[in-house]
């Protein structure tokens, strides 16, 4: 079942100015339910831009982007917000957590806007995810007191909490030591396979990747090639 498709996607920053930069050029790909996709490339190759567009965080681009056959460009801001909430779970390279809040307060964020889980189910759902990620004992701690690995798990818990269809991972382990990074990657990928999630992993380092992905695209100077 085709979940989302991007056709001839191009992205230009500072259009029609001296510093015009072409980040993505005619990139096309499609994603089916349960796919595990890796996009690799050097720094500045447009990986994060690609992820931003896929995750509906950036709507200024050329080309066609459809989700379940629906053109994204035709959706208004509220519809995009609902899609972001229900369909995508994003883990950023630098975690992007609310520093002064507790782990619990960070994980609950997508549930505030969720229609999948009712208010009274929230606590149970958080406990469930925390148990899976082995972070139950740090839920009440402030994020600023947590180690890199713990912060990463909190970010992953937040991405998974609303049971999204697609997990977008932007260099999720780049700030961790290699052993811990591999552990976390293995966990995410096995979790994805087990729950039939679609995963898009963006990384610059493909050496340490477990060999579980279906497709591997390479981004070289804004152009996407299947490797």
């Amino acid at each position: 079942m085709r979940l989302l498709a991007l056709e001839n996607l191009s992205k230009v920053y500072h259009k029609n100015t001296r510093s015009e930069t072409h980040v993505l050029e005619n990139c096309s790909f499609e994603l089916n339910k349960g796919d595990i996709l890796v996009i690799s490339g050097e720094s500045g190759s447009g990986k994060s831009t690609f992820l931003n567009i896929t995750g509906l965080l950036d709507k200024v681009y050329d080309g066609e982007y459809t989700i379940r056959g629906q053109a994204v460009k035709k959706l208004n801001n509220n519809q995009l917000a609902i899609l972001r909430n229900e369909m995508f779970g994003i883990v950023f390279q630098d975690y992007v957590l609310v520093e002064h809040a507790s782990a619990y307060e960070n994980i609950i964020i997508p549930l505030y806007y969720s229609k999948k889980y009712k208010r009274k189910e929230r606590r149970h759902r958080i406990r469930e995810i925390a148990q899976t990620l082995k972070i139950e004992d740090i839920l009440d701690k402030s994020v600023s007191q947590l180690s890199g690995g713990q912060r990463q798990r909190v970010a992953i818990a937040r991405a998974l909490i609303n049971d999204p269809d697609v997990l977008l991972l932007d260099e999720p382990t780049s700030a961790l030591n290699p052993d811990l990074a591999l552990d976390i990657l293995k966990f995410i990928l096995s979790f994805g396979q087990k729950h039939h999630k679609t995963i898009v992993l963006v990384t610059h380092d493909t050496q340490t990747l477990p060999n579980v992905f279906n497709k591997h695209y390479q981004l070289i100077q804004g152009k996407m090639t299947l490797s």
């Binding site: 917000a81 992007v96 964020i109 806007y113």
Partner: peptide, 11 residues
């Protein structure tokens, strides 16, 4: 962070 997680501008 809330907007990324699905908050609307109205919220």
């Amino acid at each position: 962070i809330h907007l990324i997680a699905g908050a609307t501008l109205r919220a």
